[in-house]
Computed example of a mutant assay.
Amino acid sequence: MLASVPAASAAPAATPFQLQTFVFADLPTPIIGASSGFEPGTATLSILNQLPDRPVTAAVSVRWISLGTGISGVAFFPTLAGAPTPPVTIKPGVGQVIATIEGGLYPGFGTFFVP
């Protein structure tokens, strides 16, 4: 009798890749996070620290490249007058992704794995 082994799967995980800091006039700096494991080869980038009374006040972009596939792109997070900024889905394929946060006063860098 042969036993079947279930296929391995990674649980969805969120990886924040920027520390919280405050700049001029105590404005919140966005913490960007990457969530992956929901769909193979895709990740969702989002602003993790959005509060209704302290919205992120400047547009932010995240430039990313997959070391596994070489696919690259830019995710844009515009400011939306008091409304939460929606997440952005990227499709880098499977592998380690390097991301840099661009946008005036909010530099940042991080890596995350996309299964």
Rank of each mutant, 00 (worst) to 15 (best):
Y106M: 08
G41Q: 01
A25C: 08
T89Q: 15
G95L: 04
G41I: 04
Q50I: 12
S35I: 10
P78Y: 03
L27M: 09
K91G: 13
P115S: 08
P55K: 01
F38R: 14
A3P: 05
P6H: 09
A34P: 00
F77S: 03
Q20P: 06
S36D: 00
F22Y: 14
S4N: 10
G95H: 04
S72P: 02
G110E: 03
I32D: 00
A34I: 04
S66V: 09
G33V: 08
Q18S: 15
N49C: 09
N49S: 06
G82C: 05
G73M: 05
A10I: 09
V74K: 12
G95Q: 06
F38Y: 13
P40K: 03
Y106W: 11
Q96T: 15
G103F: 01
A7W: 04
T69I: 06
D53R: 14
P40T: 12
P16S: 11
A7D: 10
T42A: 08
A34T: 10
I101G: 01
Q96F: 11
F109Y: 15
V74Q: 04
A59M: 06
G70P: 01
A99S: 09
G33Y: 02
P86T: 14
A83M: 11
G33E: 03
P84Y: 13
P107N: 13
S66Y: 06
A25E: 03
T44Q: 03
Q50E: 10
T15M: 05
I65F: 10
L51Y: 08
F112K: 03
P115Y: 04
D26S: 13
P52S: 15
L2H: 14
F113C: 08
R54W: 04
A75K: 01
Q96S: 13
I47F: 03
F38S: 13
A34S: 11
S9D: 06
I90V: 13
F24C: 06
T85V: 15
S4E: 08
G95E: 04
P86H: 09
F109M: 11
R54V: 12
S61F: 03
A34R: 00
T21S: 11
A8V: 12
A14E: 05
G33N: 05
